[in-house]
Amino acid sequence: MNEKPMTKTVARRFLLGAVDDSERERIESLFIIDTETQETILIAEDELIEEYLEGSLSESEAAKFLGQYARGPRQRRKLRIAKSIREFAQAEAMRGETPRSPLQKVRNFLSLGWPIDRRVYIPIGVAVATVLVVGAVWLVQWNNHRIRFNNLQAAIEQELTELNGPSSRRDNPNKVFSLVLPSVSLRSINSPAEVRPQAVYSIVELHLLWPHQAESGSYVAVLGRVGGSEKFTVENLQAETNPAGKVVRLRFRTHSLTPGLYRVSLNAMASGSSGPTEEYQFVIGG
């Protein structure tokens, strides 16, 4: 047997019936026993079918092709099946291309000009995931902290409002530590008075000396720690006259405030408009 190697060109000629009988028999017997020849011929056949379906065969090749491949019903069915597979694959590809989801767009963007080896993306992915997780945990903690802070602020403000309300002001509980505070403008050279929380009293009552003679309807006190962000507002405070002079009483619980220097800004309100303001300072000891 002649052992000429099987090339794609020879295979193509054989498939289109363009070889003589002895060559045809040689190729057929090779096709039966030699896997490589079989593969070469079948690949050439697939290409011929493809070119026929695409309409890219020359007129004479197309005629030969039909003579070989469209004679019997089974062969015609094979052609229809081949056509169906290609049409289905092309339709699937078109469906996959449009429209693209944002995730697919990101994938496509990443695949353009980037290394194809997906292992490269593993450390990047891990780093991104870690940053996202840490960020999410921080955000949750920060949000919880903010909620706790706001709740605490609201609770203290509520407590201050209750302690300084008209009914509470008339009470004179035993466990109250009173402290007379002149305004900063009056005692600028003295150091601020200090309040030391003690077990025997739980409430501190500041007697804020009001140096102005004019009568005011009410007073608004804003209490805040120097250097801190929290501020507590107490409205509807009233002035009264006692042996120390004209004072505005402001009560708070010692446990509500953390140690540090505090400032009280007291503002007189007369018929809805703001009057004079005085500032007072005191220290909560540790």
């Binding site: 096709f31 039966i32 019997g72 089974r74």
Partner: peptide, 15 residues
């Protein structure tokens, strides 16, 4: 392989 050979030889019933 035989099915194909009969088809290539334009036999009406390769099966």
């Amino acid at each position: 392989s035989l099915l194909r050979i009969f088809a290539w030889n334009q036999c009406a019933d390769p099966e």
